[in-house]
Design a protein around this nucleic acid. Structure first.
Length: 445
DNA sequence: TTAGCCTTGACA
DNA sequence: TGTCAAGGCTAA
């Protein structure tokens, strides 16, 4: 086989952290977890946890609680159906092509990491090395946002058994320029459509804080992001995707772009890789939600949800097709969008808030805690200075922004719980950054 | 019961 | 014909 065995076997078992012996029941695991999973399923074993069903499963404690071990096996994605009911030996199963694809991806990832001269020391199962996979230069910006049509995913059929089955509609970006102009008064070097209106930071007005300018410079261009993710989705979408699996794919690629943004951003790139991972593991869902919310505030239309691909979903459709938990999430999200809209939060402020979310000194076991705390203080200072310049008569605005920030946190925690449930019930596509982040956060908690 | 090693057999 | 992911065996 062309793929080096070392690529896959270099990893640790996602259940207990022992050395991986190969693909077993859907993913790379060690020999002992393979055997444990097989015995449990074949013999239909029922375990009971003597504690509170939150036992730590690692190489030294994996024997202590079979209940929690089996739960973890399922949680990381081991597949019950890969255990054969007829106990036939040998041969191949339906997971074969998946294993092959996964191997190829790992091989590609490793080659890229090596080619770029980046560190290849053992990273956790989370695809942190994905950072390097997606660092190729962005495609050229579409300079004409009105005539530019995103690659159409409109033909995708929507599964009626999907929890939320809204109708897809193609968005025509007639409001793109207008909204961008309204909100972008800044940033030399920013690739986003900029306005001729210099805003409060005209040559004769106050200077925009340097740090805010830098944050906006780090921000990815919306149109480039849109075309990049649309192209990825067209390439990767399965034959008959459900709405939910499509949204997961979208979220996954948005997450990759967020990680890429962080990796190349001021301050963050100065951190050690361990701290970078801890920060990202801790706030990925907040950044994902912030990305979505900011898109609605800056570019969205009333009554619609604007997706990263440029497509729109009608809010009324989402509400009518979604289950209770999704509908409540969407409702709270909309309220947050309205608050931010009312506060006229602009791109600069969103850029600052992103950094506030990322540099969270409350994350445990940070090596460079002091630096991260100082960055957070600097970001807060820059944001305060900026808001005082843009709205000097609205002294409470900064406090309102911080309140929105905490609402974002609580909302993202809910969204993450929802995703975890969906993942446990096998509805979230596996082997992507989204699920890896879910695992990482759960295993840190 | 666990976990390491062995055997089997479809597939490239 | 080699590979590798199934199930089986067995010492600890």
């Amino acid at each position: 086989m062309e793929y080096g065995h070392d690529v896959a076997l270099d990893e640790l078992c996602p259940v207990c952290g022992d050395k991986v012996s190969g693909y077993h029941y859907g993913l790379l695991t060690c020999e002992s977890c393979k055997g444990f999973f097989k015995r449990t399923v074949q013999n239909n074993k029922k375990y009971i946890c003597a504690e509170n069903q939150e036992c730590t499963i690692d190489i030294t404690q994996r024997k202590r609680c079979p209940f929690c071990r089996f739960q973890k096996c399922l949680h990381v994605g081991m597949q019950l159906e890969a255990v054969r009911a007829d106990r036939m030996r040998g041969g191949r199963n339906k997971f074969g092509p998946m294993y092959k694809q996964d191997r190829a991806l790992k091989q590609q990832r490793k080659a890229l990491v090596q080619a770029m001269g980046l560190r290849t020391d053992r990273s956790p199962p989370l695809g942190y090395s994905d950072l390097t996979l997606h660092s190729s230069p962005l495609p050229p910006a579409k300079n004409d946002p009105i005539s530019y049509q995103p690659p159409s995913l409109c033909s995708l059929s929507l599964s009626s058994n999907s929890p939320a089955a809204p109708q897809y509609q193609c968005a025509v970006f007639s409001n793109w320029t207008r909204k961008s102009e309204h909100s972008s008064n800044c940033s030399p070097g920013s690739a986003t459509t900029v306005s001729s209106d210099p805003g409060p930071f005209s040559p004769h007005g106050p200077r925009m804080p340097e740090l805010v300018m830098e944050f906006v410079r780090c921000d990815p261009d919306e149109l480039q992001l849109q075309s990049k993710i649309s192209a990825c989705l067209l390439r990767e979408q399965p034959a008959n995707p459900s709405t939910f699996s499509l949204l997961c794919l979208m979220a996954d690629h948005t997450l990759l772009s967020i990680v890429e943004w962080a990796r190349t951003s001021i301050f963050f790139k100065q951190l050690k890789v361990n701290d970078q991972m801890k920060l990202l593991h801790s706030c990925w869902s907040e950044l994902l939600l912030l990305d979505f919310i900011s898109r609605q505030v800056l570019f969205g239309r009333e009554g619609h949800l604007l997706l990263v691909t440029g497509q729109e979903m009608e809010l009324s459709d989402v509400a009518s097709h979604a289950g209770l938990s999704v509908a409540s999430l969407v409702q709270r999200g909309q309220e947050l969008v309205e608050k931010l809209h009312f506060l006229k939060v602009d791109r600069q402020e969103f850029a600052c808030i992103k950094f506030l979310v990322l540099f969270n000194p409350d994350v445990k076991q940070l090596e460079d805690h002091q630096f991260i705390e100082s960055v957070q203080e600097q970001v807060e200072g820059a944001l305060l200075e900026y808001t005082l310049c843009t709205s000097p008569y609205l002294l409470g605005r900064f406090a309102h922004l911080l309140l929105c920030f905490s609402e974002l946190r609580s909302l993202s925690a809910l969204a993450e719980d929802y995703l975890s449930c969906k993942h446990l019930s096998g509805e979230v596509p596996c082997n992507n950054l989204l699920t890896e982040m879910l695992h990482a956060k759960r295993s840190c908690a």
